[in-house]
């Protein structure tokens, strides 16, 4: 690496470490109760959401590589990455608040069904899972899209006679670095998600909501403590993952 690149990397990393670690340490206080629970909850829901995003992300990448109308449709999976997360949260909230549309309109069966869905999704564990899965899709999609650009595994397996779900499963196993990357980076992403969760699924309390509430209720110090703990855990995992997968 030449000296200019070294200087740029050194400067950027130093500024980030100063802003995200060194200076906040001056404020650090122990996080309020509930930190471990929120961390574990985020880890579990994030893992489930990442797993859920793998097959759709891969299928979209395959469709995108094939082009045509399905390829264009696959680009929809990028939407959660390119619009503000708060917008995604508001839109999900609206979609799962359908009872308002059906109730009182004479369609009582639909009203009951929509109410049931609404009550079991918004600010419920299922809502957290849906929100995280929606936000994980663009990560999976982009990672598999990149992998399929380098390796034409789909053409190889299709020519061997594989199609449908078996084709996707073979691709997941064959592109194992990409699969592991998609899983790890979608999971890491789930720790950073606030906008969608705050509006659509703020309960059970996940890491980002916990930090936000700690800041509102206890001030900067305890929120800094929780934030640094999350940074330490997630950044270490991201570093290991990058070393292992590259």
């Amino acid at each position: 690496m030449d000296s200019f690149a070294k200087a740029v990397v050194g400067l950027t990393a130093s500024v980030l470490l100063l802003l995200l670690v060194a200076l906040p340490l001056l404020y650090v206080d122990p996080p309020p109760p509930g930190f471990v629970e929120s961390f574990v909850l985020t880890a579990v829901f994030g893992l489930a959401a990442s797993l859920l995003s793998l097959v759709p992300g891969l299928a979209a990448a395959v469709a995108a590589r094939r082009g045509g109308a399905w390829g264009a449709l696959a680009q929809v999976l990028y939407i959660p990455a390119v619009v503000p997360p708060t917008s995604v949260g508001v839109l999900l909230l609206a979609s799962f608040s359908l009872p308002r549309l059906f109730c009182g309109g004479g369609v009582e069966v639909l009203c009951a069904s929509a109410s049931f869905v609404s009550e079991h999704v918004i600010n419920r564990p299922l809502g957290v899972l849906i929100a995280m899965a929606v936000m994980a899709l663009p990560t999976s999609f982009s990672i598999f899209d990149g992998a399929l650009r380098e390796e034409r595994a789909e053409a190889f397996f299709r020519a061997l006679g594989f199609s449908g779900l078996r084709l996707l499963l073979l691709l997941l196993l064959s592109l194992r670095s990409a699969t592991a990357s998609a899983l790890v980076f979608s999971w890491i992403r789930s720790f950073g998600e606030l906008g969608v969760l705050l509006i659509f699924a703020s309960y059970p309390v996940t890491a980002s909501i916990y930090i936000y509430q700690a800041w509102l209720s206890y001030g900067v110090g305890p929120a800094v403590g929780a934030s640094l703990a999350v940074i330490a855990a997630v950044a270490a995992l991201a570093f290991v993952a990058r070393r292992w997968l590259s």
């Binding site: 390796e151 053409a155 397996f157």
Partner: peptide, 12 residues
């Protein structure tokens, strides 16, 4: 028609 690629595919 079996299609062998320039970048060999990892066995799954």
């Amino acid at each position: 028609l079996a299609y062998v690629q320039s970048v060999p595919v990892d066995p799954p």
